[in-house]
Design a binder for these strands. Structure first.
Lengths: 274, 274
DNA sequence: GAGTGGTCTAGACCACTGT
DNA sequence: CAGTGGTCTAGACCACTCC
């Protein structure tokens, strides 16, 4: 007759109780992905709690990416985005493709490598090119002196149906790439797929790529811009390309919603021989 | 005379306002790391909001890792843990050290490589060895048949002063390692520093290590066990060691609080030559 | 045992959505 | 314009901390 009974339904009294009940309903299939969830008032009546408590539970599940819906609008069970992988093998492939013809590169879809998304007409890319003074951390990695500028390329890939998007920012030392005017032209080709090839046109070969990986919560802007639930972390890759002389020649900051992508890094070890 | 005035202090009315005010006080140095924060009631009076609103603001900052303090106790500005790096270069170093003598390995501190923490008397390691039926995902990676078991080693590294801890779980196919009884002994040596060496004793050379990286929010248990603020994401590495025959021989799941460590992965690219 | 953090009910208001 | 989500004030209770 008390809470130690484990088989009978426990009384729903607190926000965590409501959360558990909703998760159970989804797990049991009573609520399917895409289905509308009853309103806060209806949930409050159904579970015998105050509307505020129901609201808090629904807010929590929205933050966790389980539910979705605009403020003031209806709420539904979120359709989870497909899970993909991003492997550092892509760097080997991209380098091998750099020497191939333009037709071959376009056919293989080099541009897909950085976004890890199939390029379809469903997406539109918004690209911006600017020559700017670099942030101090960028200048430090490039080893730039005061006053030396960088080319900043920002990309927002937006899903036309509003089902999600991804974006990134990349930097190149301006002194390095001004030798080839094509590299300053935003309309020249899909970006940033061919960065390695673009650097090849000015005589630079990439010898090493370093990914620095952190994770943090999405900014409110990222939440709305890239459709990241506010409680889902963002993997942040700072990808630094080094030339064969070991100079940093490109830096790309790539945010990746952690509920969509798994990062894979293979480290090949030398044999013992001895 | 309205909210568009940007220089005058805006009126503090909502929880986000209180959050901004507290962050500003910390940024300006009025509140130093370690300082006590006024109680919810005091903050409510100070900013002219209800105690509930102040409580919500403080809760949010605790979740974000800015403030800290037990429920029911005083609240203080959290001392941010030092930032370290975990590079895949460690794998090369660890392999090179495997052939060295035991003294050399102990002196170089191979065990530090996996934890990325200096081993001091401040820490105590709690290690558990079990032979168990593997979870299905583990069995699949190892390619185990039904009924084949694994050695599971769990480690909790706890800071004696309560300033944080880290932990990990690793799996080895039992059929593989039963050849060397030492590998079943939890007291044999600090773990998991010498896993590569331990596998060497049964004739296995590691040829490739794959790190699969994801991020998610800490479980409530991790929050208390490892002192991770509930709003700080956890980087999760599934480290898979492959033998030179490309068989998976060890799997380690390593959770890393994202506010303490940056992951670094170097990918070396082959030269063009042609 | 007083103080504190956390959270529930209760009622109210606002901004936005969805017809 | 009705419905909905979000959130603030208000008051209350509980568990825990700290002295």
């Amino acid at each position: 007759m008390n809470t130690s009974d484990s088989t009978a339904d426990p009384p729903v009294r607190t926000a965590p109780d409501v959360i558990s009940a909703l998760l159970a309903a989804i797990r049991e299939g009573e609520l399917q992905p895409g289905d509308h969830v009853p309103s806060n008032s209806a949930l409050a009546a159904q579970y015998g709690v105050h509307r505020n408590t129901a609201s808090k539970a629904v807010s929590h599940l929205k933050a966790a990416g389980v539910l979705s819906g605009p403020a003031g609008g209806k709420t539904w069970v979120r359709v989870k985005p497909p899970y993909t992988r991003r492997s550092n093998m892509r760097y080997h492939i991209e380098k091998a493709l750099t020497l191939k013809s333009e037709e071959e590169r376009a056919a293989t879809g080099v541009a897909e490598l950085d976004s890890n998304l199939k390029i379809e007409s469903l997406y539109e890319d918004l690209v911006d090119y600017d020559v700017v003074d670099p942030p101090s951390d960028i200048a430090e990695i490039f080893g730039l002196a005061e006053g030396q500028q960088v080319l900043r390329r920002t990309r927002l890939r937006r899903h036309r149906a509003g089902a999600g998007s991804s974006g990134s920012v990349s930097y190149l030392p301006y002194d390095l790439i001004k030798r080839n005017p094509d590299l300053l032209d935003a309309k020249r080709e899909p970006w940033p797929g061919g960065t390695m090839h673009q650097l090849f046109t000015i005589g630079i070969e990439i010898g090493r790529i370093q990914d620095r990986v952190t994770a943090s919560m999405p900014t409110p802007e990222e939440s709305v811009e890239y459709d990241i639930p506010p409680g889902v972390p963002v993997l942040r890759i700072r990808k630094i390309s080094y030339s064969t002389e070991d100079d940093a020649v490109e830096i790309a900051d790539i945010p990746i919603p952690a509920d969509r992508v798994e990062l894979v890094y293979d480290t090949m070890l030398e044999g013992w021989e001895s």
